[in-house]
Each structure stands twice: as C-alpha cells, then as structure tokens.
C-alpha cells in the first residue's frame, strides 16, 4: 500500500514522459501553424522600417503602433467595427434564441423550419452572397418590394452610404444565425422537460416559462454564443466582398480586418509592420471584450449560486 502510494507520487521517468509523447504530434502542428505565426506577427509589429524583400529592419520600437494610431482610417476602422459588433450581436443572438425556441417546440412544421434555417450553413457563401445582392437590389430586390408593400420608400441598400452599413449588418446577422441556432437548440434540448411540465401545472404562461425558466437555464449557452459571435464579428471582412466588392462607398465600411488587409495588399510598398500592429490591437480588443463577457458570465453564475469550478 505504502509502496504503491509512493510509486504514484514518483513514477519512473519513462512513465512520466509518456503522456507528453502522445501530445507531441499535435503540439508540433499547432506550434508550426499557429504559435509560430502568432509570435512572428507579434515580433513583426515591433520591427521598425521593416523591408519585406530583404528582411532588414532598423530596430525594435513602437513606431508602427504610433503611426496607425495617428491614422484616421484606422480610428474609423475601429469605430465601424465596434458599431458593427454592438449592433449585430444582440440582434443575432436574440433572433436565434427566438427561432431556436420555436424549433424546440415539437410542432408539425418544425422539420420544415429546421431545414429552412440550416440551409444557409450548407450552401456556398458566394451563391448566398449573390442572392443577397439581388435581394438588396434597388429596383428589383425583394426587400424593397416588401418595403413598398408596406408603403415605405425603396432604399438603395448597396449604394447609399447611409444604408449600406445596415445592409452589411443584416447580412452579418443572417449569416451568424444558423450556427447560433444549432448551439442554442442543443442547449435547449439539454433542459429537462420536467421543468416545463412543473411550470405548466402551476399555470405559467409560455412567455413566463421562456423568461423565468428557459433563458436562465440556457444562460451558459447564451453566453457561449455571444462570445463566439463577438469574436467572429470583430473579424468582419469576408462579408464585404459579395455585397460591395470592397469597403463600401468612400471607405465607409472600412473594418479593422479590412484595414489590416489593405496595409499589405493595397499599398506599395506593403506595410507589413503596420498590418501586424493593427492585428495585435485587434487581438487585444477581442481579448478584452471576451474577457469582460466572461466576467459577466461568471458574476451571473455566482448570483445564481452555482458552484464555480
């Protein structure tokens, strides 16, 4: 017994390194394709006067950071990105929650609904983007057609600098929803139906059940989708191409990732250092933002008295 306990505490060297050997292949992959680029970008952001072709630089310092923080385009990019995140996340999550809740109710049409909402996930991004482009079309798009039905004026969604941001948001919300719905739905299906039965026997309306039972019990999943979607919304970039083929009218949809992209793709000579510095700032913003959400989540859980492990 004693011997055994001692062995557990002090296993032979071979036994001790064994688990690390199993981890090695994966670790090497992550190191080469994830860790190395991250570290490299970090270092690059501090290299001053970096020359891409020769690899020469004058020294380490904050020159890249100073220069982008003075760049009005960068400041604008941050503003646009924040505005986008703050608008898209609440709408995407709230709408997804409503739809997931509907899908979770076993109605006759739920099969149809499930297909409808998961379709975007399996269709090609380009095809979907083009479809939206047609739907947003000023003259023949279905969105304006519907607006007209309600007696509202047509909106030039894609060309009007006051409207194109909203088109981007609508498209962003829409493309965020399928995955969000899937996560929320799986969370909903984990809620023991007895809670609903218990509440129903007590005569709770479905609205009360939703807000007093479903939402609180689902809150871990809700926070998860908020965080995941926030990270992806901060990186809004791909969405710009199918709809606007670029950063909007007069750069009014110039987002952070587009700024990074532009620094080394749109400029000659490319400004790798500034791109790297912007990427690090984006990384920092995402980190702070998700950290805040994480703290809110934990605080939320604490007032609900669950043991935090």
């Amino acid at each position: 017994m004693n011997l055994y306990a001692k062995n557990l505490k002090n296993p032979p060297f071979k036994k001790r390194i064994e688990p690390f050997l199993y981890l090695l292949p994966f670790t090497i992959g992550v190191a080469i394709f994830t860790l190395y680029p991250i570290v490299n970008v970090f270092i690059l952001s501090f290299k001053e006067n970096y020359r891409h072709l020769t690899g020469k630089y004058s020294g380490f310092g904050f020159a890249n950071y100073r220069s982008i923080l003075k760049d009005p385009y960068f400041i604008q990019a941050i503003q646009i990105t924040f505005k986008y995140v703050l608008i898209v996340i609440p709408f995407a999550v709230a709408l997804s929650l409503m739809i997931a809740n509907l899908l979770n109710q076993k109605t006759k049409l739920s099969g149809l609904f499930q297909t409808m909402y998961f379709l975007p996930l399996i269709t090609s991004v380009t095809a979907v983007g083009l479809t939206w482009k047609y739907m947003f079309n000023y003259r023949s798009g279905i969105i304006n057609f519907i607006l007209n039905l309600f007696g509202l004026n047509s909106v030039n969604w894609l060309q009007d600098p006051n409207a194109n941001f909203w088109a981007l948001c609508i498209y962003g919300i829409w493309s965020m929803m399928p995955f969000t719905i899937i996560l929320l739905l799986s969370g909903l299906q984990n809620i023991d139906p007895r809670y609903y039965t218990a509440a129903k026997v007590d005569g709770a309306s479905s609205l009360r059940i939703f807000f007093r039972i479903t939402v609180p019990l689902l809150s871990p999943t809700i926070w998860l989708v908020v965080i995941i979607n926030t990270i992806s919304a901060f990186k809004v970039f791909n969405e710009l191409f199918p709809l606007f083929a670029g950063p909007g009218i007069g750069h009014n949809l110039y987002t952070l990732v587009y700024y990074i992209y532009h620094q080394f793709r749109g400029l000659t000579p490319p400004k790798y250092g500034r791109a790297a510095a912007a990427a690090i700032i984006l990384f920092g913003l995402i980190l702070i933002f998700t950290r805040i959400q994480f703290l809110i989540q934990r605080w939320n859980r604490e007032i609900h008295g669950e043991k935090s492990k």
């Binding site: 023991d192 007895r194 039965t197 218990a198 039972i213 019990l217 809150s219 609900h304 669950e306």
Partner: peptide
C-alpha cells in the same frame, strides 16, 4: 420523482 426544483 426527481423533484424538478428549478436549479437557478
């Protein structure tokens, strides 16, 4: 049977 108290 399992009481179904609301955990939150």
């Amino acid at each position: 049977q399992n009481y179904s108290l609301y955990p939150h």
